[in-house]
Design a protein around this nucleic acid. Structure first.
Lengths: 212, 212
DNA sequence: TAGATTGTTAATCGATTAACAATC
DNA sequence: TAGATTGTTAATCGATTAACAATC
């Protein structure tokens, strides 16, 4: 990897490139030029070449990019050639859904445990796993070498949960709570702000109507 | 509203401003300067003033911004002073969670129906609502004046569902499928790419480790 | 070799930040 | 009035696009 200061804009496009490459693989396409890729994915050919060249020269002049090769490179860049061990905190609606979702869809990400504060839920089963008490989370993260904590609790306790996870030595936090949380610089953080996104949708719906 | 070409970067910050304003309201804070707001929310004071001035002069020189006033203005800008009628398409894991989530959390957004292709689920109840057959969705959207369709189906059928919703005259689509969908320009679209976000998290986890 | 297409530098565009005059 | 803080213009920064030489 050439450079460690890749902008977030670039990083956030990589998973999208990867999705389209998987589609191409399914169709048996072996090579693609930046121009063809551009028409498919909707970024300019220039941007595609610029993005990929942040990480190395994956293409071949006069030919294009090998679909398989590029897919593997992006996997390696994103770290998807590794396994990640996750815990879910919060076994409510969202926690339940994310557990199922994570278990079914995203290969390479393994849900190892579900934690909950609510006494009534502790001990019950979720997707074949026994829901554990939040009290034991630090020990579990350490012992089970958990990489990622998925925060599915209410906003009020989200920061507290994050603090505990960081204390336990978690490497990354995936936050679904409706608040911004803070983590030390050695912990990676991504947030899914569902309500913020829905509110942006409302704006665009009204904006479209206004213009006509 | 002064200008209709507000950049997406600005729009996506508005819900965040709003969240912090609600927190301030809860604490009984009545006014805030861009400098104080900056320290709270983490954007520069200059950016806050610049953002807000896209929509009008909501502040008062020498004083700052009224918390209540600004909150109302942002509500109006985002269109959160209206009610939105939603349908959920896909009663699987994610559909179930989003239904609960939407019903519980986001005031102003009403879930009016849940639709599903899978025969086995049709007629069963979800959050007190009877799951309906996907076949009847166009009629339902028209008759019930539905504004937003939430796509919680698998990637393979997401575009087809989107097409049907657009045909039925939907105003906005909230997409949770793992594919990019296309809609005509008069339909608003926001996508929540869970797996893309998780992959970006993986990148940052590895990036942090590399730097040390 | 000629044609195609990358890798990379230069130009443009847009978004963020700084500065300051206007004004409460 | 003096002090504070906005609204707004100008400067900077970063990201995207265009251009083209390198090279397969």
């Amino acid at each position: 990897m050439k450079n460690s200061k890749i902008s977030n804009a670039v990083i956030n496009r990589l998973p999208r490139y990867r999705r389209y490459l998987i589609e191409l693989q399914k169709k048996g396409v072996e090579k693609i030029s930046s121009k063809e890729f551009s028409e498919l994915i909707g970024y300019t050919a220039s941007q595609i070449r610029q993005d990929l060249n942040n990480f190395g020269g994956f293409g071949q002049q006069g030919y294009g990019y090998s679909v398989d090769g590029l897919k593997s490179e992006i996997d390696a860049i994103l770290g998807l050639d590794k396994e990640y061990r996750m815990v879910i905190i919060g076994a409510g609606n969202l926690g339940h859904a994310i557990t199922k979702y994570a278990k079914s869809i995203t290969a390479g990400f393994k849900v190892c445990g579900v934690f909950e504060k609510n006494e009534k839920l502790i001990g019950t089963k979720l997707e074949g796993m026994e829901i554990m008490s939040y009290e034991g989370i630090v020990e579990f993260v350490e012992k089970e070498k958990i990489d990622i904590g998925v925060i599915c609790v209410n906003g009020d306790s989200a920061q507290e949960v994050a603090d505990k996870l960081c204390f336990a030595g978690i490497k990354g936090i995936w936050n679904f709570a409706r608040v911004d949380i803070e983590v030390p610089p050695h912990v990676a953080l991504e947030s899914m702000q569902l309500s913020d996104n829905l509110h942006a949708l409302a704006y665009h719906m009204n904006d479209i109507r206004k213009k006509r």
